[in-house]
Design a protein around this nucleic acid. Structure first.
Lengths: 261, 261
DNA sequence: CATCAATGTCCAATATAATGTACATATGAT
DNA sequence: ATCATATGTACATTATATTGGACATTGATG
């Protein structure tokens, strides 16, 4: 992911950066891996990875699991993540908003945020349809692939957006390239309207709705989304958008509120 | 916490260790702090802390929050923690067990684990009494202060226990010292009986019950506890222990189960 | 005003961390 | 048996990360 800084060949990577590269890689893979596999797949020197993995193991950041010396994210990370969640206590309100959306629309509802320079589904409530439409929670995805992506970068200038999004993320899953200028135009449109909807680029049968959840600084700290079958989405467009806006209003300013104090 | 390795004076700390020391410190404090304050309070060189904090900020591990350049744990940690929780999916069963305990006993019920070489309450359900007895979730506490602590180290040898627990953690909150040999005797007793109960050392009015939740390796991966007023605890001892054992049985082998094979 | 403490930035020195390489072992294919 | 691949360990080299200390700024206090 951050292999961008390979600009100057033969440059050493900093331990901290490599360490978090390893952690992020394990998160993406969602499975325990051997140090050797990690090294090969992230393109890092084996000796460095072994050294870092051992350090992380001794700190409880990684844990042995799955046997054969495989490692995965450790309990310490759970504790740290829980502390974050506790501090910016958005979980309760978030679940309530998703619940409400699911009740009112019977569609799949998602709460999404940026994960660095990519997009991720933080929490999800599946719809009540016989055939559910769902996504992997916690996987990060290129920003341009998603409706929410248009909203989440809207506070940046055009140039900042281009700097922020990795160039290869404009390549869509099918292989075609999305013109960055087209993307930026959609971002500005989303910004003006305070919403974005489209027929999903990542498949051929869903329609996506996204509205911003604004944080203290006034820009989209997160989004609430609905993922629906195309027909239903287009048929219920106005009602669904109303539901989303209502739910988002209930969340505003919640994400940044500290627990006590 | 890990200031133990100050053994050789004038030794440089490794960036990774220092970084996680900072993260852990923020978790303990449960509030945003300025880099300068962090440096002063953990006894690290200011220049090092500034450097590391900036690195962690640029990785999303820390975030500016609270103004005045204060930093706290970042969103990335939440994502990593969520991935851990997802992999070792104990949350659902855990909540169910606590719910059940709360229903049956009306007392405060806790799910506890080791956090490195200390003890921490991972999840809690408050009792239904007019005056609730509760603890801070996520604070780490010396192992010898808790009933659970006797169970969580029972798989170690006597010597390993002494090496594992920081010596100063045998000092009780009142200032008195707990004899390590007494502690070890209690550990062995807890191991034999598969439970530990006592009048809490940290206050004068509670009685604590703890039973192990055994993981795949057969030793206590976690504990379930009840914290009760002393009278009630002693009066209902047998019933409460039955409830705990039943709830723990429902959790066994759950903590280590990966989500998808 | 003078002084002190708190805060952040900058920089050179050197202890050491990241790396490449060699080595050891196991496993499976040819 | 021979070779190739996957995996882990050990170590010397050198690029650099950690650190101490100088410096600048701000705000509070006497």
């Amino acid at each position: 992911m951050d292999a961008v800084q390979d600009e100057a060949a033969g440059k050493r990577a900093r331990g901290l950066d490599r360490a978090f590269e390893i952690l992020d890689f394990l998160r993406q893979k969602r499975q325990a891996l051997k140090p050797n596999e990690i090294a090969a797949q992230i393109g890092a020197p084996r000796s460095s990875v072994y050294e870092l993995v051992n350090l992380l193991l001794s700190n409880g950041i990684l844990e042995f699991t799955g046997g054969d010396g495989r490692v995965y994210l450790g309990r310490k990370l759970y504790f740290l993540g829980a502390a974050y969640e506790n501090h910016f206590d958005f979980t309760r309100e978030c679940e309530a908003a998703l619940e409400q959306l699911a009740d009112e629309t019977r569609e799949t509802a998602q709460f999404c945020m940026l994960d660095g320079n990519r997009y991720t589904v933080v929490r999800m409530r599946e719809g009540a349809r016989p055939f559910r439409i769902s996504t992997d929670v916690g996987q990060s995805v290129p920003i341009p692939w998603t409706a929410s992506g248009r909203l989440l970068v809207a506070h940046l200038s055009d140039q900042e957006i281009l700097n922020f999004i990795p160039p290869q993320d404009f390549r869509l899953p099918g292989g075609e390239w999305l013109d960055p200028q087209t993307f930026i135009a959609e971002v500005r449109q989303a910004e003006r309207e305070g919403l974005f909807t489209f027929n999903s680029i990542v498949d051929s049968f869903t329609h996506c709705f996204a509205v911003p959840v604004r944080g203290e600084e006034g820009h989209a700290a997160a989004t609430l989304c609905l993922v629906t079958p195309r027909d239903d989405g287009i048929a219920n467009r106005d009602r669904y958008l109303d539901c989303l806006r209502k739910a988002a209003a209930g969340l505003e300013h919640a994400p940044a509120r500290p627990k006590r104090g």
